[in-house]
Amino acid sequence: MIVFLIKRLSNAALVMLAVALMAFMIFRFAGDPVELMVNEQTTQEQRQELRERLGIDQPVLMQFARFVGNAVQGDFGISYRNQESVMSLIAERFPATFELVILATILSLVVGVPLGVITAIYRGRWFSEAVQFASIIGVSLPSFVIGILLILGFSVSLGWLPAFGRGEVVQFGWWSTGLLTHSGRMALILPTVALSLYQITLVMRLVRAEMLETLRSDFVKFARARGVPAWRIHYRHALRNCLMPVVTMTAMNIGALIAFALVTETVFQWPGMGLLFIQAITFVDIPVMAAYLVIVSFIFVTLNTLVDITYALIDPRLRDATT
């Protein structure tokens, strides 16, 4: 298990280094940042001084080493746009995105897993066919359309829920949460639903496919032959064998959701990282873009590693293979 852990962790570190290199490259290909930050009246001395402050007068390799060194300590330099520390900008926005993504994930599992199990068990019945059909719509509608439709329905026509923003938030140190206030919770509903709809259909279809396959397997037939009741076979024996791919997909998708959230956040003007990134692109704010890239990748890699470790916990066969 320890060898396995070390192996997985060093893999993860290598991937992160590659990502850091790519993020760093953006700096080299997006033109001279100094030109973007200064105006015509800036003197040559001021430009030089800014260059030194940004550290871009040094050799490339040195710059990269410093970039990595700083990134490890959570320092991604300062935003070109408003001269603020990138890290504090992101820290300010991260809780909003995180809250949204986690809620969407939970919603997609809570709705998707039972739907998948039910449509697999009652295959061919009218209601499971209906759910199947609805899920095709869920998969094919782009999330911004869903977002806009939700706003149209629940905010504009019915006026039940806010159309944009986070509502009131409560601060805990640098962390802010909308879960503790009424307006914060109301504001969360629409973006969460918009973001999770696609995930629900994915989870449902995956669970359904896996269940159908597992229900055909010998050990399910054998369990029936030794008199295990149907519900117990479905929810204990079969479902557990389906969980591996669900865990993988869910974890991977938390990463994907953070990226998807970009669209949802734009539609709902949700003050998260995605919106920050969109603004950064508009202003060619390279440090913010680079930091976003590194942080999103870091989340991806971390989740991946966690998934591998979770595998070993769910499936006893892998536990042995890795020791």
Binding site: D218, F219, F222, A223, A225, N241, I314, D315
Partner: peptide
Amino acid sequence: AIFQDPLTSLNPL
């Protein structure tokens, strides 16, 4: 009941 293939008759988990 006893099935043919003991490798697949038992739930691996």
